[in-house]
Design a protein around this nucleic acid. Structure first.
Lengths: 217, 217
DNA sequence: ACTTGTGAAATCGTTCACAGCG
DNA sequence: CGCTGTGAACGATTTCACAAGT
């Protein structure tokens, strides 16, 4: 057994942000029956440098074989595991508007071992209906039903004004992971992980880039 | 006139990514009638350090007054201008699925001076219908109609398999800005700015964080 | 006194480049 | 010989801390 590199307590956030792309590309190679891949080849497909790929993998103590490369299937399993995808995750969509509906209908979750199980809303006109095959339930029911339904993650898609109140219900339900699409900070206890996706911000960064047209990215 | 700080050619990407939040908070302060704000106060509301805020502003040569702070309205105008929001932007949604519909229906664009003008799809069953007040047009029409409609930005919400072909049409239409929601790289000429939003990646990063439960973020 | 603007230091992330193993 | 794994160099970003302006 060798001394095995940096081996940090935590993955650098930049490395984490690249992991899903690594996994996606490895799935493609695995499906193609490719058994081994070099950092140069995989990095090329990902539009990053081979040194960066090797550094990222070394943070997770994922080792290849010198002179050969990395074993595709093993690396796929390892990255999946690092992302926590070797278990099933139940998702609840909170907010039955058009964005909530879009997330609920999205079929790309299965390949991440995630499944949307229900939609929660406060609007009595929506409660009791179905969106696709999914029931729309009263948000007030979430704390009582989260465990029974097997919900691990909530997706906040309510208007900004309603976001904090909805987040409070999610926290009371004992759910410890949240994707927040509302353009607001939500305050949660420290054991709850929140990731925010601000679509408006992306548009504004784009318009900045379009106005400042120097050709290189 | 004084010598005015770093004054880079380009804004650091990390600074750019914070600008939309700065602007949002400044709008709130402006609406509240607050005339001046210190970096300490504004930074506190943004959950960042006052040094970082001042550094970011200095990159844009936005100066405050020592002992006093920054003039709220002036700073709001300056950040809006830096983001390119002092002009109107026409947006086309490409892909009339549930995500495209959600973007088309989103009412938060007005405050960024952006407006969704039309939805483009290849599906003959959708073309000719309306989503809200917006017409669904044939994607093949995009190059012919982009100028007339005043479209500056396209939002790609088509399935991964269709993304590159749709991007090619967008480029042929002379549109130079794109938000890509498809989980794929799209290849475009260098004058076209693309920002990608990968929702699946956010979920996977969240599950990683949930599995690696050390309390701090 | 209060607060900015910014050098300098510290921290974080990426790339270089090569020793070392297969 | 090819390719990994990783120190060391480099570059980017954040924080410190304080001189200077009001």
């Amino acid at each position: 057994m060798k001394t095995q590199g940096p081996l940090r307590r935590r993955l650098p956030p930049e490395t984490l942000s690249r992991l899903p792309a690594y996994r996606k590309q490895l799935r493609i190679l695995d499906d193609e029956g490719q058994e081994v891949v070099s950092s140069k080849d995989l990095a090329f497909r990902l539009h990053i440098s081979d040194a960066q790929l090797r550094r990222d993998l070394s943070y997770m103590a994922l080792l290849g074989r010198r002179g050969l490369g990395y074993e595709v299937h093993g690396l796929l399993e390892a990255t999946s595991s690092a992302l926590g995808l070797d278990r099933h995750w139940g998702v609840a969509v909170v907010g039955g508007g058009s964005l909530g509906t879009a997330i609920a209908r999205y079929r790309g979750f299965v390949s991440s071992n995630m499944e949307v199980l229900a939609i929660f809303d406060v609007d009595a006109r929506k409660v009791g209906k179905k969106i696709g095959k999914l029931p729309v339930l009263d948000l007030a029911e979430l704390p009582a039903r989260a465990r029974e339904l097997g919900i691990d993650i909530a997706v906040l898609t309510v208007p900004a004004e309603a976001a904090q109140a909805a987040a409070d219900v999610i926290v009371r339900a004992g759910i410890t992971g949240m994707i927040n699409f509302s353009p607001t900070f939500v305050q949660v206890p420290p054991e709850v992980r929140v990731r925010s996706v601000d679509i408006t911000s992306e548009f504004q960064q784009l318009t900045h880039q379009m106005e400042h047209r120097a050709l290189p990215l």
